[in-house]
Every structure is written in structure tokens, then in C-alpha cells.
Computed example of a mutant assay.
Amino acid sequence: MELFAVPDLPEIREGDDLAAMVRDRVDLRADDVVCVASTVVSKAEGRTFDLGDFPAGPRAREIAARLGAISGEEKDPRFAQAVLEESTELLMEAPFLLTETRFGHVGVNAGIDRSNVPDGDLLLLPERPSESAERIREGLPVDRVVVTDTCGRPFRHGQRGVAIGWAGMHASRDWRGETDRDGRELGVTVESVVDELAAASNLVAGEGDGGTPAVVVRDFEWGEHGGSDELFRDVGGDFVRQALRGWEFDG
């Protein structure tokens, strides 16, 4: 398997045709996987906003005041308001905001970015990233597209790439029912392929001002395996989320 960045992509603006930009710069093959950073997807879809677009309500002011008291730094309640409006559930409100987005992804601050936003204060995640991936796929001569983001992980330091949307492929390879090297049947192994491709592409894309927002994965083979589109855990089986609902920060 080979990965390489799409070269010379300019600063993306609202209305830009990401598929055409990638297509014009790379000789793509039908079985390639194109991984595109959510940052540029959001910019093309007009998800750039100013803080003034989110007048703070009482709940946002309360959250900002508490976070400010914890950190010793003033927090803008308009940012808290943006996070609340982009979320369906607030899992933690201190010492940081951990939320579920409207499309099921759980992350800090609803994935709202405040860096690399030349035309505004905030960059929100795509509203429906899998639909975004499908639109990009329709403009490319490839079968598979993944929209990626970076976020932290519980129990580990650092961020890594994850998939928040995908098109033309299942999210996971399902190994259940197959056997290991000793002939034992696998009962629980479901491999999150879109996350693995997102993490691999993030290594190539990089971060900061030297980052490149689109990566081509070549010669990835799915193999003779079943597939699953379950990526985000259902609340009923998410015991960590259930535990967080009963937890209160007392620092």
C-alpha cells in the first residue's frame, strides 16, 4: 500500500470544487481511496463563522465562567454557545467540553477549530460528513472517499486521525466468524478500516502550516471479508458514555 499527498492545493474558499482540485493534480485510479481533511471540506461548504454569529445564552455564559475559573483564563461564552449549538449531548462540561455532534462523533468542543481560519473566528465540522464524502466521490474517478479529522483519545496522550465521514466503502471489516491462525473462531473483531486509513493519511498530510489536506491511498485491498457501517457506538452499549453521565468534575 502506498500513500502520497495531493500537491499544491491552494487555500480553500467557500464554493471551491474539492473534487476538481484533486482531480487536476493527481492521476487517480478507480481503486484509490482519497482521504480529505474535514478542514477543507468545511471551508468549501461555508462552515466558517464569526463568534458574533453565536450570541451567548445563559447556559453558555455559565459554562464559560466555570471553565474560566478552572483554567484561570477568560473564556468567551460565544464559543461555548457555538459548541452547544453543534452538539446533541454535552458529556462533560468541565474541565473541558466533550460533546456528541449531530452526526454522532464524540469529541472536544464539537470539533470546532479556531486555527487556520483566515476568513473568520471559527470553523465548524461539516454538517453531514458522509454526504460530503459522497459529493466529493461523485466528482472523482475513484470508488472510495474518507473525510478525516484529528482528535484525542481517552487513556493516551496526543491526537491522531479519525474518519468522520466515508463513501463508497464500509466503515469496518468484519472478521467475526473467520478463524485465527490456531483455527479458533473470531467472535468480536470488527476492524475500523476508515479510522485506520484516516490515521495513515494523517501521517502523510502532517499538521500545522506545513500540512496538506488531501492524501491518496493506493493499492489498499479490502479482501474477502464482510463489512459494517457501524462506527459510532450506540448509547445503549457505550458504557464509558454512561459512566460519564454520572460523573462530575470536582477539581
Rank of each mutant, 00 (worst) to 15 (best):
P129I: 12
A20P: 00
G183F: 10
A205R: 06
H170N: 14
W247M: 11
E45T: 07
L186A: 03
G72W: 10
D32G: 01
S201L: 08
E248D: 06
G152A: 08
R156Q: 10
R156L: 09
F239V: 05
V26N: 00
A82Q: 07
G168I: 08
R66I: 01
L84T: 07
T48K: 03
R144W: 08
A19V: 00
Q159C: 05
A65D: 09
R181T: 12
E14I: 00
H225W: 09
P154G: 03
L244K: 14
E221K: 07
L90W: 02
R181A: 15
E100R: 15
H170D: 14
D121S: 09
H105S: 10
F155Y: 13
K43D: 06
F103K: 03
G120F: 02
E11L: 02
S115W: 05
V188G: 04
G72M: 06
V117T: 13
A64H: 11
R218A: 05
H105A: 15
E178Y: 14
S172A: 14
L9W: 01
D76Q: 07
R13M: 00
T88A: 07
R144T: 14
R153E: 13
L90M: 15
I164T: 15
R66T: 14
E196G: 09
E131D: 14
R137G: 06
E85D: 13
A167C: 08
D8G: 00
P213N: 08
D238K: 12
E127A: 13
T39V: 09
P213A: 08
